[in-house]
Amino acid sequence: MSSKVEAAISAKGKVLIGYLPVGFPSLEGSIEAAVALVESGVDILELGVPYTDPVMDGLVIQEATQVALANGFKLPHAIEAVKQITARVDIPVLLMTYFNPVIQYGVDKFASDLSEAGGAGLITPDLIPDEASEWLAAAEKYDLDRVFLAAPSSTDERLAQAVQNSRGFVYAVSTMGITGARQDVDVAAKSLVARLRNVGATHIGVGVGISNGTQVREVLNYGDGAIVGSALVKALNDGGLTALRSVAAELASGK
């Protein structure tokens, strides 16, 4: 039993975690984009599962995932994307998904299929550990990572709960806000990471709001991973693979 994500973080020290939605601009296009991210210096992939009601996502990601749904995204495509990407590049691939699709697919079956496809685990933005017993059992059974979120507003007790239940890393939400590139990475992130360390966190990814290499460097001064989403999706949307590679490489320069 071992965490692919934790192994990658331990091997590299500091990592860049890149998010892209599956199915945007198309299933094949999203697979190519994910591979391009890895070739440009991203260490861990976070593939978003498009969902009709993405309450944690800002406009850039909402728009991309709605395009994916309109183009006919189906849940098995997420598993297929993991399979194809892990066959081409040797890095951990996590799925980030709202929980209802997993429930409807069947939690155990989803975990089994994800594991078989070579996936590392799940990030669950609207599933707190309190509601996660079925997923935790499946993750244990199929040896998958489970990444829970930690927020500046969380009590120390809840931070400890997130740390104890997470494997891979614990996801520190760096501002109170929803995802979307911001000019300044919130100072709240630093204090949240310190609080997480105090309750025993060893692997911490910091996300929401990072859009350039300088911010990646700043975040990696205290966090183990810098998570970037909207800035990458925006680049892919505005300038295709060329722009995506260039933004990813600039972000990776902050490592």
Binding site: V55, N100, L127, E131, L149, A151, S153, S154, A162, M176
Partner: peptide, 12 residues
């Protein structure tokens, strides 16, 4: 029932 929401809202 329950609470299927982002952690950011739990404190509130």
């Amino acid at each position: 029932g329950g609470r299927f929401v982002p952690e950011s809202l739990i404190a509130a």
